[in-house]
Design a protein around this nucleic acid. Sequence first.
DNA 1: GGTTGGCACTCGCCCCTGCAGTCTGCCAAT
DNA 2: ATTGGCAGACTGCAGGGGCGAGTGCCAACC
Lengths: 338, 338
Amino acid sequence: MLDERKAIILRAVVTEYIETALPVGSGHVATVPEVTVSSATIRNDMAALEADGYLAQPHTSAGRVPTEKGYRFFVDQLGGPGRLGASESQQVRSFFSQTHGELEQMLADTTQLLSGLTRYTAVVVGPPHEVATIKSIQIVVLAPRLILVVLVLSNGAVEKHSIDLLHDVDEAHVAAASQRISALLVGQGLAAAGSPGLDDAISLVESDPVREIVALTVASLRVEHRQDDHVFIGGTSEMVASFDAVATVSEILRILEQQLVVVSLIENVLDRGLSVAIGRETGNEALSDCSLVVAPYVVDGESAGSIGVLGPTRMHYDQALSAVAVVADRLGKRLSEG
Amino acid sequence: MLDERKAIILRAVVTEYIETALPVGSGHVATVPEVTVSSATIRNDMAALEADGYLAQPHTSAGRVPTEKGYRFFVDQLGGPGRLGASESQQVRSFFSQTHGELEQMLADTTQLLSGLTRYTAVVVGPPHEVATIKSIQIVVLAPRLILVVLVLSNGAVEKHSIDLLHDVDEAHVAAASQRISALLVGQGLAAAGSPGLDDAISLVESDPVREIVALTVASLRVEHRQDDHVFIGGTSEMVASFDAVATVSEILRILEQQLVVVSLIENVLDRGLSVAIGRETGNEALSDCSLVVAPYVVDGESAGSIGVLGPTRMHYDQALSAVAVVADRLGKRLSEG
DNA sequence: GGTTGGCACTCGCCCCTGCAGTCTGCCAAT
DNA sequence: ATTGGCAGACTGCAGGGGCGAGTGCCAACC
């Protein structure tokens, strides 16, 4: 474990570096009020901190820069999220009092809020459709051999699957199929489509064409459990300013464009509550200059999804943590109201 | 108008500058095969081209750089879009043979294709819902005072509006309202919701609660004619590499995040067919280092939407033009098939 | 008259140098 | 254990010289 004084010095270095992005020297550390010893003593301690892997020197006779381990210590001893500033909490309050409308629109707007609060990129992952129950299933004929299955879920999400058929269909058959399938699945979770007992029920349908439609529809519900359209990203322009190499920016944008990466990344930390992944801890080499602050949000007592911000490793962790924590909390409450 | 030789020289300068991003000198122009005169002559012509505003000098005794006017001439005399390279057209073909599924998924995938082909950011604007007819209207009760109206349109798009009610609702009333409204609007265009005759029809509904639901639903259809969810953007990471100032990149990303700007921008050129906006021609000061190549796509004989790429002013116009033209053409055909 | 080679000139770029500043590591003193 | 002092290392910046690319001009040429 770290000496009390070393901890203070490390914290001072990290704080200063986050602010200036410049290597921090012993002289500068000596000026901060919490530090009462001389710069020589600080030098000794900083050398020890470097030996222990908390700090690094870009080159001899330069100041020190935090390593991932250094940031990790800094974040851990930060404890919980701090309070939000007055103007920020005002922003959050007015957002949640004004927002309304569709689930997806709200989630998309939430990325705006979060990125506005933190000046970093915000990621919001919507609730997986699995937790909701099916409110309604409707089959619409778009073309003689093309039908569209429209699912309405209890959380207000709407899913649709188009199905190509082998034969032309009859409106009457579709209506019948629509009714059969509603009877089977409405009120259940989406997972019900996967239950084996369903196949027996389907085989009981007398009419061949109707059975075909029902079977294909159920099959499409089984297959297309995609996580798509669940991830919302906002404020990429904000974060860019934190980096100076265009190549780095390009890499990060590439990662963000492949939304799947972000999803798995966020889900990995889903049951840990509010948490931070620093640099390579994100599991992605390309994000080694980035940190990710994530928190799940809870709807009706269940962890429903997660939100987070992606910024540089030298991000303002306290602000980011509070912003993410507060927004996750308020979002969960808002969605619980319905 | 421009001298034949001056045109060749201008073209050479633009081509070279697009390739290298470095000011082009008379000596370099003299090496291109199409130019048969000496560098001294080229110098004279380049001075004239500068006087006419086609070229500019970053500083005395440097090479020349094209101005917007220079790019404009270059693009205009390029004539139509060229052919696509073999591997590119292969890419397009395999994309359109494989792609399937929802309209929106396809449009989103198209941005991937376009940005992959051009290495620039791709923008795809979906068909406005106004042109499609209503296939089905369904009202689902999400909570005692919250209903969701789900519209299925003939092009496979699904629109939803949630409506907060003042009183608790009865399933039977909702079913009745659903039926009434279907009878009124199914088969018509979305614009039908705006017709004044509809109000008379609504007032004929006897039951008060049913009439209330119908009226609110129609009202929501009138109001929420948003262009949202129609714009797809992809390949932002590609374009970033074309710029060297992080600040520029940030500006451009900011513009892209405000999708509305892009929409209006693309719609301005919608009826002009395949077209190019260079630098300030885009109408946006922040995009003065960018060019936009756009083309509408035609579904069932009607201009349905547009696609485009956003790149640096020194973009490979010929490739971008062909890619946009070909993809717009194929996309339109694909969507016409249904 | 248009075109060309030659030439002087301009300027940005790069490299080198020197200087100021900063920070470290070490050591002797406290 | 802590401190002040000091030498050494290295960056960053400013200034100067050489280099090279490119221009504009001019006289000569077809």
